[in-house]
Amino acid sequence: MTTNAPDLARMIVTEGPLDVPLPGHGRTAERLRALADLGHRDIAVGRLVEAHLDADAILDEIAGERARPGEFWGVWAAEPPEPRVAATHGRAGRWELTGAKPWCSGVITCTHALVTADVGFDRRLFAVDLHQPGVRPERGGWIATGMRATETGTARFDRATARAIGEPGAYLDRPGFWHGGIGVAACWLGGARKVADVLYTAARDRDDDLTLMHLGAVDALLAQGGALLEQAAVTIDADPTDEAAARHLAFRVRWSVEQIATAVVDRVNRALGPGPLVHDRAHAQAVADLTVYLRQSHADRDLVTIGRLAAEQARNVRTIPTEILR
């Protein structure tokens, strides 16, 4: 378990040889494997590094630029009804942000962030240097043990200088938004592997059919998740600009990986009982982290969306005339 996940994530981003390909550039499988490996190493660290890599990909896709050396980015795009962040033209015609943005991971440690804000009735994306007087990060309110190490809090903006990234709607209306969602699923799968580590270790010392049965199921589930991500990467690289296909793929992959990760947690618990949860700090933290992280999924609402997309796809498929089949 990492004692300071944000500092470690920042070190990985700014000091380590972090060479993770952009999605949709022919090496997406490498990107998803790297994200899964980060989640396996430490779920909270993986979540923070994933956000930086997503910000880098967003900057590239929308603005044709990249994160600079030494920078550690967050993507702060939660949109609850309240509170809100508003963007206006301020001094010298520059954009300024005012308001509060909740659910900001790395709120203390990040150097920069991509922040969504209201411009009238539109939503627009802005790049913000967080080292300025108009930005005040706040911790607090995070009661759960799970993902506490991600340093998630509220960022308050008081006429903070910002730079618009793309036109209104550009953040959501792009295939990369969905590619990024699949990247999160890769982190989930890595987290499931971390939860499963204790079962693999226990099986080395046990000649017990029930333990081996659960291990067999977990091993197959993790392999299934890995294959799913590999195939998703092939699909993305084959046509990285197809937003509709990317959206359907992201919902399918995220829901499927969520089921795999949930099943892995259940299998490990049933195989080993409460012992690891109460005596193994790293394992207990991993279970708590993964449980919270998976709630980035919209659960059954996502199934409704998948059903609608599938129905729409079915309606668009032309029926083959029966005479052709004769």
Rank of each mutant, 00 (worst) to 15 (best):
T3Q: 12
P6L: 13
D7F: 03
A9W: 02
T14Y: 00
E15G: 07
P17R: 11
A34D: 05
A34I: 02
L35C: 09
L35P: 06
I43T: 09
A44C: 15
V49Q: 06
L53R: 14
A57M: 06
D60F: 10
R66I: 09
W73I: 03
A78D: 11
T88V: 15
G90V: 08
G93H: 06
R94I: 01
L97F: 10
G99H: 09
V107K: 07
T109F: 00
H112D: 11
A113G: 13
F121R: 15
R124K: 11
R124H: 04
A127M: 04
D129E: 14
D129C: 02
D129H: 05
Q132M: 09
Q132K: 11
M147W: 14
A149H: 11
T150G: 02
A164T: 05
P168D: 05
R174V: 03
W178C: 01
H179R: 05
G183R: 00
L189S: 04
G190I: 06
A192S: 14
D205V: 10
L212S: 12
H214Q: 08
L222K: 11
A227W: 03
Q231L: 10
A233C: 13
T235I: 12
A238Y: 07
R247V: 00
V253W: 00
S256M: 06
Q259H: 11
D266W: 10
D266F: 11
N269L: 10
V278D: 05
R281E: 13
V287K: 08
L294N: 08
D300K: 08
D302L: 09
I306Y: 03
A310E: 12
A311V: 01
R315P: 01
R318P: 01
E323K: 11
